[in-house]
Design a protein around this nucleic acid. Structure first.
Lengths: 243, 243, 243, 243
DNA sequence: GATGAATGAGTGTTCATTCAT
DNA sequence: GATGAATGAACACTCATTCAT
């Protein structure tokens, strides 16, 4: 048995396997493995050798796809960013009252935080990037923050959200969500969908105009909601909230 | 102008200065500089040479006070932990309804997150520590988390807090607070006290039994609350909530 | 003039030379240079830089072949051990009376002590090795000692050796031989073969059953025995016997 | 209980003890501890801190008695040398046939090899000394070797020793003896006196003019010779002769 | 496209030695 | 005489990166 987190067949370089998959596929494989390793061991402790080893290739081969270690880091982050951007774009496209949109974002963001690339967004240290990339990261984060605030402001305007400071509220909500990226573990007690459901409810009930009466579950998930009556204590985030 | 964050006179080794301060004072100076540097540049990028240089000593001199780099890291973290423990002890000693205690904790914790040693608690990576220290860290974090939950549970019992899942709520609150350690900057728009006041209000209003009517300001701070009417947009967290 | 003991062409890394020799050849070259340097300067005084320099490579390149300095030390020792083991195996395979086998061993061992890898066996300090390797070393030494004793015991049994304490006699003989590793120098007055001949004679005459009548020269060497009549003072160990 | 090899009271700096002993006494104490540590751990692994610690003093205090670490090493060696010189002087003063004197030397030398300062002579590496000291060491060793050869030559002249090559014989004998310094352990099976007796017998029986008839025991020791008939297997050197 | 081999720059750590007190 | 503190010089080891093949 192979106890490595990534099943060996995730690597397009597997020996005895067709080695002619598209370049992009290989690039993606590098990122999948890298993001995992970076999260698992931390960027500085994880060596390119580790990455290469898990891919059944050698270290210099990585340089066919990336120019440097920090470029890999950036690419990981970038993939995570795309996910958030897509989510935001979809929500924006959907329209609806501010509170609904906020809830959709919270839900999507929470789920993303439970993915490798999503967690990249908050667990990687921008100081490991080049200045150029660092600037891009800063801008992207600002944009995401903007969305939170905009939805809240819109909600206030359309009456779905109580009067409050959008900046600060966005801030508190995002902080809570970001933290998920630090504690979530695949083998934890709660599934990403469950966590997302709960956080959607909890993080918005405080600012909803009509407290306590969201349609419970907001953006529906196909999640098997394992018999937890609303209002009852049921959700179980795996570890302590202090990280 | 000296652009270094620590004013030079923070070092007991300053040339031409009285070198006879106590050993503990020097040890503390090392920690003050180290925690700063670790936060500023990240643990791995900050070298012991950097630390020593800022103290006007040489690298090996550090080994008079600490046995290894990771021991310095642990000592920094340890100091932060003491601060939290003291705060919790004081609150426990004070008694009062669950909600009041929760607010005190939120307030104290938020303020701590704006200090170097406080931020250590959430910004240092336990994987940089020895296994022994890592275990201590884990236990301490669990204990802090416990306090959040206990206060909430007590609040529910005494009627000061609405029925909710203590675990999850503690989780959301602590997540939001921890995040402060990641974005707070000394030169930001809001003072630690202001941030603490706001977070105390916002993070607990959602679960208070009688929403919207906290005595506004919870644990009073002597903070000059610069004319910001409740409900109006006044608080200014420096950067986006997405870290 | 190049005063270095190893002629430059011993290095497969010589500049402007074909660099494509086999990996094992390079590994061996490292060992050849390392053992030399370790004997010459002592393990602690010899740095990996020294080793690398003599090989026209850089220090980290050594890590392609060995994981640590002490692993190099062990590998040197290990090569020496193989030589002894082979000699013993050959003698065991050959059979013959105890005394004859003892003489063969003394002869072979003496000659080995005059080689770099042979001297490793007695000049390297096992305390520089890891515990695991140290155990192997101890076991190997015990096994060699065993052979000396067994041959003596066999000799007593078959009448070729006088009655004596095999343990102690083996001890005295081996001690004398081991010491060769400490004083022998390539540029000394006696060749390894000469030394081996003499020691074979002297160290066994005391315990031979029929004193004074070994076939003079025991295991014949093709050594040019430079006109030294038996009984006359001819052999010239380079330096004093006190090391 | 104190498990350290040297009883604590060997240190003139022991707390609560009269601290006013003579300077030389302290110097000697340093040497006693140093030689022990150097033999125990090896010169390079033993730090001056280790030495100081065992003496209940601090590292710089050592510099009151010695100018450098290698001077301590030399002083240890020097003490050992005195012991041998004294023995030789006594033997020379005593006169007697060559064989008798040789046996006295072998006996005395063997016993010395079982002492810390005696072992210094053969276990310390002269390359750790300054060039000046190294020269002294070389000269001293030559002189000792000279004595062995002289006694043998005298023995041949007076008929007590069989015709042989004095140089080589001295060499083999001394080698065997030196090796004792490498394997002797205080807690071994044989006492120094027993070892000395045995080696005196064995190492000279081969070259005695009338083999097998030494007055058994040569230079008498008061050693309790635990019932071991001559010629029978009785002596038990603790470990293998291969070091 | 991939690799084996090599490197340069750096990092924590050790330790004999010095010096002001 | 003794110490606490500091230092300089080294050293083993790591790792991202390069390059000839």
């Amino acid at each position: 048995m192979d106890s490595r987190p990534t099943p060996a067949d995730a690597s397009p370089w597997l020996p005895f396997e067709n080695r002619r998959r598209a370049r992009d596929e290989k690039r993606d494989a590098v990122l999948r493995v890298a993001v995992q390793l970076f999260l698992e061991q931390g960027y500085h402790r994880a060596t390119l050798n580790d990455v290469a080893e898990r891919l059944n290739i050698t270290k210099p081969a990585l340089y066919n796809y990336f120019r440097s270690k920090d470029e890999i880091l950036y690419a990981c982050w970038s993939l995570g960013r795309e996910l958030v951007d897509d989510a935001i774009a979809a929500i924006d496209a959907g329209g609806g009252p501010g509170l609904a949109r906020l809830r959709k974002l919270v839900h999507a963001y929470a789920e993303l935080m439970a993915t490798d690339f999503g967690a990249s967004l908050v667990r990687f240290d921008p100081r490991d990037l080049t200045e150029a990339h660092r600037r891009i990261v800063r801008a992207a984060k600002k944009k995401i923050d903007r969305s939170f605030r905009d939805y809240i402001a819109a909600g206030i305007a359309d009456g779905s959200v109580r009067r409050c400071d959008p900046k600060l509220s966005a801030f508190a909500i995002a902080g809570s969500l970001n933290w998920i990226g630090h504690w979530y573990q695949r083998d934890g007690a709660s599934s990403p969908a469950e966590i997302a459901d709960e956080f959607t409810l909890r993080l918005t009930e405080g600012i909803a105009a009509t407290p306590d009466k969201p349609a419970r579950g907001g953006p529906k998930t196909k999640t098997a909601r394992k018999a937890s009556a609303p209002g009852k204590q049921g959700r179980k985030p795996p570890r302590g909230g202090t990280g």
